[in-house]
Amino acid sequence: MTTQTTVTPPLAAPALPSVLALGLSRAAVETRMFFREKDAVIFTFSFPIILLVLFGSIFAGELEGTGITVSQLYTAGLIGAGVMGAAFQHLGIGISVDREDGTLKRLAGTPMPRSAYFIGKLLSSLVVAVLEVVVLLAIGVLLYDLDLPDQASSWLTMAWVLTLGLAGAALLGIAVSSVPRSAKSAPAVITMPFVVLQFISGVFIPFTELPDWLINISSFFPLKWMCQGLRSVFLGDAGAALELTGSYELGKVALVLTAWVVGGLVLCLTTFRWKGRRDG
């Protein structure tokens, strides 16, 4: 008498979550980690706020013939600087720390797609940037009589300027994270050029006060164009007289910011390192 044995087929491996789902999950982790670091939270949010209150209080006069106050001009510029800081500075320093403490190496050894890590970082920076914009807008409206846009086209301009600017700054931050030799040197290496860039990009000092060679340098970087696009939103037609060309040049703003998105992506693909210098 023959006994038949039933062979149970092996269970199929469970399907892995999609890259987007993993990226969203990673974004939640990154955001929680950021807000647990109270000193980083305080510095990230307080720096542009303190500068806006200080400069807005010291230079409280009206720009001749425009009906625009210096405080309103600073608000528009510092919104751009705050968004770039939330992307470029936040990512550049954060990824440098992740590389040195072994986080990148451990993540690279897991089934999680590497792209999910970057999606998480970008979405976390987006959350920080949106909060930064809301806080700075509130201060501008409450303290300095900043007028919010009353036309849908202005809100649309603000949306694409901030989106392109944030994307370009974030990709640049990811690329520059490979420059510091250690996590300890990352804040100095990344923060110092960003502060200098703010002074030559029309955030604190009007372009009419800068020499031509500094204007040419700042025109190469995205911050100058972000601030110019945001001034078109908040200062309106009267503010165009303050620009070097008498126009906001929104077409050129879009072109330069898009170029930085493409260029930033190329830089990331060619320079990013998963291992620290000591790991070879």
Rank of each mutant, 00 (worst) to 15 (best):
V196C: 13
T163K: 03
A76W: 00
I93W: 02
A76M: 05
L73T: 04
L136N: 01
L164I: 05
L257A: 04
G251R: 14
S201L: 02
R231D: 01
T44S: 12
I190K: 03
V141T: 13
W274S: 05
R273F: 06
A108H: 11
G239N: 05
L230E: 00
T271D: 09
E132N: 12
T69D: 07
L267M: 15
G264C: 12
P111A: 13
G263C: 14
L265S: 15
A159R: 07
Q228I: 04
A28T: 14
L214G: 08
G85E: 01
K105E: 07
A12Y: 02
L78M: 15
S178V: 10
G276T: 11
I217E: 06
V196F: 14
T191M: 12
V189G: 06
L123T: 00
G246A: 09
L255G: 12
E209R: 15
D98P: 04
D212K: 13
G140E: 00
Y248I: 09
L104Q: 01
G165L: 04
T270N: 11
V135I: 15
F35N: 08
P222G: 12
P180L: 13
F118D: 01
K38W: 13
L235H: 03
Y248L: 10
G77C: 09
P222Q: 11
A259I: 09
L223M: 07
S125K: 01
V29G: 07
S201E: 02
A87P: 02
N216K: 15
Q151C: 09
V128H: 02
D101G: 03
T191K: 10
I217K: 04
L54T: 12
S177V: 04
G65Q: 08
T163Y: 01
R114M: 11
S201W: 00
I68S: 03
L24K: 08
Q198S: 09
F34H: 07
E64H: 10
R278H: 15
L171I: 13
V203A: 02
L230P: 00
A159F: 10
L172D: 03
T271S: 15
G65W: 10
A12H: 08
K105P: 01
I42F: 15
F88N: 02
V266K: 11
G80D: 01
A169Y: 08
L54Y: 14
I205M: 06
E37W: 12
V130G: 00
V41D: 09
S201Q: 05
G229K: 00
D212V: 14
D145M: 14
R277M: 11
F55M: 13
I119S: 01
P222K: 06
R181N: 14
L223F: 02
F204N: 02
K121N: 05
S154G: 15
D279G: 10
F34K: 07
M84W: 00
V29L: 15
T103P: 09
G276L: 07
I190S: 03
V97Y: 15
T270M: 11
I139Y: 02
G56S: 14
G61M: 08
V203S: 00
I205Q: 04
A188C: 08
Y117V: 05
A81M: 11
F88E: 02
I68M: 06
S232M: 07
